[in-house]
Design a protein around this nucleic acid. Structure first.
Length: 474
RNA sequence: GUCCCUAUCGUCUAGAGGCCUAGGACAAUACCCUUUCACGGUAUGAACCGGGGUUCGAAUCCCCGUGGGGACGCCA
C-alpha cells in the first residue's frame, strides 16, 4: 500500500464510536469518541456513531439521548448514523445463515446446565474455561444426538491452530494463540445475535477502517479478526486506548466516581476545557499543553497515545478551565451568569450588565458556577455578617464612607473618574486606600475582597452603590 | 488458575541506545507584582518499580520477578 500513498489506492478513513446505551456518556467514553473523531477529521474521513443496543434489558432511549447530548455538548459531530443494531437484525440473521451454509458456523445444543458443569470441571482442573467443541462438526466425527425440543445456539467455528495477530496502533503487536479461544456463540437460542458478531458485521458493512476503542476490547479483537476473516472481510486497523482512572487512582465505575460529561457542564466547565484536558490525557504532542480542537485535529495521531492507564486529575482540568474562561467572550460568560443565577432563582437584570460582571471576574474564577456566585452579590444586596461588620465598619471607616458617598452622588460612574474621586476622598479624610476600600467592599459586596474597587463601583452603578451605602451607614 | 495488557516526579506526560547531571505542565513551596483577594511573573523541591542480561554506553532492547488493569458469559 505504501507505494500508492496519495494515489487512487488511498482508502478513506472511517472510524466509529459504538457505545451501548446503558447509561450516560462518561469521561472514558468521551475520550474514546474524541480520539475516533479526531482521527477521522485528521485524515479527512468519516466518523460514524453506532448504538449497540442489543442488550434490550439494559438499553434505554434516555441513555441514547444522554450520549447524543454529551457528544453534542463536546462538539463531536458524527458524519453518519446513529445506526441502531436493533434495526439491523435481519442483516445479522442473513449473515448467520450464510455462515451456517458455508460451514464457518454450526448449531450447538449444549444446555446451560451442561456448560456450567463443563466450566466447573475446567476450573477445578485449573484450566481456562472454554467450550469443548462437542457439537463442532469434523470429518469422520459422530455428533451427539440432537435432543428433543431444544433450540440450538449458533457457534463460530474458530480456527484451532496458529495465532491471531495484529499490530495494535497503541499497544504494538499483539498475538494470541487460537488455542486460547473457543467456538463462541454468535446467535443465542432465541436467534438474536451476540455482541462480537454484530460488531464484526457492522464494522464490515459500515466500511470501518480504524477501530479506536477502550482496551477492555483487546480480548475481543482476536475473535473479531477470526470472524472477519471467515467472512472474507478486510480487517481494520485497531488501536486500543487504556482506561482512565478516577482522581483517587481507582477504577471508575457506576458506583465509584463515573460521572456524565454533562455533569461537567453543570459544574461550570467549558466544553473546550474538557476537550483539551481529555485530548492531553493519554496523548501528547511534545510539551504542548493548551491547544484548540483545530490544532488537536492537526496534530493528532495514534503514535503518541500512552499505553498505560491514566489517572484523572481534576486540578489540571480546573487550571485549563480557568484558562479558557479568561479567553472566553464576555457576552458568552454573561449569558452563563444569567443562566446559572436563574437556577438558583435569581433573575439577573440588564443592569448591572452581566457581561461587565463577567469581565470583572473572568480572570479570577475557575468555573462558571464560581463566576455566577461572584455575580450574585451584584443582583441581590448581600448581608455581611455582624462579625465582619464589626471588624471592618469602624467609626473612622464609616465617616470615610460617608464622605465618599457624598462625592459619588455627583460623580460620573466611569472607572477613571471613580478612581480620582476615591483619591480625593482619601485626601480629605487622611486615610490610606485599604482603610476605605475594604470597608467599602464589605458594604457593597458583603466581603472584604473583590476586583479593583473602582471597577466594581462602575459596574454596580451609582444608584445601587448609593443605596447600599445609605442602608449600611444609616 | 489460564491468557492478554501495563509500569518515568504526588498527577498528566516528553523521552524511539549516547543530546538525560531525565524536559514540560498541573499541584506544592518561596519570592515579586498588587488598594484587598485573585490573576500574572520568577524561583525551588520532586521520578526512570526491583533483579539479571545485551552493549563501549540503557529510562530507552531482552529475560525474570513484583505491582496495577483486563479477559475467560446464550453482557456489551
Amino acid at each position: 500500500m505504501g507505494f500508492f500513498v496519495g494515489g487512487p489506492m488511498t482508502v478513506t478513513v472511517r472510524t466509529r464510536f459504538a457505545p451501548s446505551p446503558t447509561g450516560f456518556l462518561h469521561i472514558g467514553g468521551a475520550r474514546t469518541a474524541l480520539f475516533s473523531w479526531a482521527y477521522a477529521r485528521r485524515h479527512g474521513g468519516q466518523f460514524i456513531l453506532r448504538i449497540e443496543d442489543t442488550d434490550v434489558a439494559r438499553s434505554t432511549p434516555e441513555a441514547v439521548q444522554a450520549i447524543v447530548d454529551g457528544m453534542q455538548w463536546l462538539g463531536l459531530a458524527h458524519d453518519e448514523g446513529p445506526f441502531y443494531q436493533m434495526q439491523r437484525m435481519d442483516r445479522y440473521r442473513e449473515v448467520i445463515q450464510q455462515m451456517l451454509a458455508a460451514g464457518t458456523a454450526y448449531h450447538c445444543y449444549t444446555s446451560k446446565e451442561e456448560l456450567d458443569a463443563l466450566r466447573a470441571e475446567q476450573e477445578a482442573a485449573k484450566e481456562k474455561p472454554r467450550y469443548d467443541g462437542r457439537w463442532r462438526p469434523a470429518p469422520g466425527k459422530t455428533l451427539p444426538v440432537v435432543p428433543e425440543g431444544v433450540a440450538p445456539v449458533v457457534r463460530f467455528r474458530n480456527p484451532t491452530d496458529g495465532v491471531v495477530a495484529w499490530d495494535d496502533q497503541v499497544k504494538g503487536r499483539i498475538e494470541i494463540a487460537n488455542a486460547e479461544l473457543d467456538d463462541f456463540i454468535i446467535a443465542r437460542a432465541d436467534g438474536t445475535p451476540t455482541y462480537n458478531f454484530c460488531v464484526v458485521v457492522d464494522d464490515r458493512d459500515m466500511g470501518i477502517t480504524h477501530v479506536i476503542r477502550g482496551d477492555d476490547h483487546v480480548n475481543n479483537t482476536p475473535r473479531q479478526i477470526n470472524l472477519l476473516e471467515a467472512l472474507g472481510a478486510p480487517v481494520p486497523v485497531y488501536g486500543h486506548l487504556s482506561m482512565i482512572l478516577g482522581d483517587d487512582g481507582q477504577k471508575l465505575s457506576k458506583r465509584h466516581g463515573a460521572v456524565s460529561v454533562m455533569q461537567y457542564d453543570d459544574e461550570g466547565y467549558l466544553p473546550e476545557a474538557v476537550l483539551n484536558y481529555l485530548g492531553r490525557l493519554g496523548w501528547s504532542h511534545g510539551d504542548e499543553e493548551v491547544f484548540s480542537m483545530a490544532q488537536f485535529v492537526e496534530w493528532f495521531d495514534l503514535d503518541h497515545i500512552t499505553s498505560s492507564a491514566a489517572q484523572f486529575n481534576t486540578e489540571k482540568l480546573n487550571w485549563l478551565n480557568a484558562h479558557y474562561i479568561k479567553l472566553a467572550d464576555d457576552a458568552r460568560l454573561g449569558n452563563a451568569i444569567v443562566e446559572r443565577l436563574a437556577r438558583g432563582g435569581v433573575t439577573a437584570t440588564a443592569s448591572p450588565d452581566p457581561a461587565a460582571i463577567a469581565a470583572l471576574y473572568k480572570d479570577r474564577v475557575q468555573n462558571l458556577n464560581e463566576l455566577a456566585d461572584c455575580a450574585h452579590a451584584f443582583y441581590v444586596a448581600p448581608q455581611a455578617s455582624a462579625e465582619m461588620l464589626a471588624q471592618h465598619l469602624t467609626e473612622p471607616a464609616k465617616a470615610a464612607l460617608a464622605d465618599l458617598s457624598r462625592r459619588l452622588a455627583s460623580a460620573d460612574f466611569l472607572p477613571e473618574v471613580l478612581a480620582k474621586t476615591l483619591k480625593e476622598s482619601l485626601a480629605a479624610t487622611g486615610l490610606k486606600m485599604p482603610q476605605v476600600a475594604i470597608p467599602l467592599r464589605v458594604v457593597l459586596l458583603g466581603q472584604p475582597q473583590s476586583p479593583a474597587i473602582d471597577r466594581v463601583l462602575a459596574v454596580l452603578g451609582r444608584d445601587e452603590v448609593l443605596r447600599r451605602l445609605e442602608r449600611m451607614l444609616a
